[in-house]
Nucleic acid binder design. Structure first.
Ligand SMILES: [Mn+2]
Ligand SMILES: [Mn+2]
Ligand SMILES: [Mn+2]
Ligand SMILES: [Mn+2]
Lengths: 215, 215
DNA sequence: TATAATTTTTAGATTTGCCTAAATTTAATT
DNA sequence: AATTAAATTTAGGCAAATCTAAAAATTATA
């Protein structure tokens, strides 16, 4: 499987994760920053290889084979992110781009040994679940901070937006995985939140609150 | 720089390491298991980018820029081999193919952090020197076992042939980097050697002896 | 030094992944 | 239901990296 094929599978997998329904050509094109015509070409190829179910004009979904392949790429991506953070002391906002490269390294033995070396983590540095060698995922239920109400308390367990900019913002506010967050006030006018993180109080916009997972 | 360009640079670098003179199109084609016409195409491109000095029909050499680029790829290859052996418990005959992939990962920060994580090793699992971040190499002088004479004693510090088959043979004979090797007898008829490795005695062909470095 | 053998380059194709522009299909609106 | 708008596919092309076959240059040999 080529890098490009792998990237398409991964994208379809991610889009399915949030929406579940069949995925449109345009949705893939937008996420991959490419053209719809290129997507069509690739969907034909992936369909030929039985990695996706594709019907012209009707959208696409992963076959079992394609889903497993996608999960293995996600597994690699997230394990490498763990490695970079835990062993090489990268911060969580620096690892994604490097993992985008590392996820394409082909060696089952390598990834399984890496898994063991890291102590078989179940989540990556952004709180996302890591599929095991068989593709099984422990799905932890978590809510967005924006769905919380006044006086509720929870622990930050993940982020939805994993962009470097957002992660750096969280660093600045000293919000990290494991931080306790308490809703002091919810402003009805703009849906912003007054929250307490540890001992500090701060106000965050609804956009921010919609990208932090709490449990 | 593409993977292919990097592989060509690395190949030219390795060929230069052993012979020093300008490298022929055919030599590159043979080493890379490709066709001479493909090599010509790539040499034009590398020349255009000032990575090689190339004159039609006259062979090729690396420019300073090309040499540094090649060294950085070799640095990555060998550091990853160290990582695989030291941290993930791969054996020395399993790491080359994986390192062939990992050497193309682009991130200076990654490779320098990996270097530190490994304790800044100067040699890879096969006894080959690892260029530092500036491309400097500590060249340790070593001789081939085949050049040794009766009664001489030395330490195995490297291998010339790094093929999996040869490395497995050495494992079987319990010859590893650091092993003490003593020449008991040199057979003039076929230039084979009777040697002592640790407490064991064994006979090795000249071909074997020509692929073990001793100091 | 001619001629033959070898090496190297050029010419022309192929595959992969991508693009633009045009055609087609599906969805949304009068 | 007809028309318009949007999404998707097709057609045709391009660049990178490879190949085969033919041409050209270099090297070896008689
Ligand atoms: Mn990531
Ligand atoms: Mn992640
Ligand atoms: Mn190697
Ligand atoms: Mn090596």
């Amino acid at each position: 499987m080529t890098f490009s094929e792998e990237n398409y599978l991964k994208t379809i997998y991610h889009l399915t994760w949030v929406s579940d329904a069949d995925i449109s050509t345009n949705a893939i094109a937008e996420k991959m920053e490419t053209k719809a015509s290129s997507v069509t070409d690739m969907l034909k190829k992936l369909s030929e290889k039985d990695l996706v179910n594709y019907i012209k004009y009707q959208g696409v979904s992963l076959t079992d084979k394609g889903k497993l392949a996608a999960k293995m790429i996600v597994r690699k991506h997230r394990l490498w992110e763990c490695f970079l953070v835990e062993k090489l002391e990268f911060s969580w906002d620096e690892v994604h781009d490097i993992a985008e490269q590392l996820e394409h390294i082909k060696s089952e033995k390598l990834i399984n040994k890496l898994d063991d070396f890291l102590g078989n983590p179940t989540e990556d540095p952004h709180g996302d679940p890591i599929p095991d060698a068989n593709g099984r995922i422990i799905k932890v239920e978590k809510q967005l901070l924006s769905e919380f109400e006044k006086n509720q308390i929870g622990i930050c367990v993940g982020v939805k937006d994993t962009s470097s900019d957002f992660l750096k913002y969280l660093d600045k506010q000293e919000i990290a995985l494991g931080s306790q967050i308490e809703i002091i006030e919810k402003e009805s006018f703009d849906s912003s939140f007054r929250i307490r993180v540890g001992t500090k109080e701060l106000t965050v916009s609804n956009k921010i609150a919609s990208n932090i997972y709490i449990k």
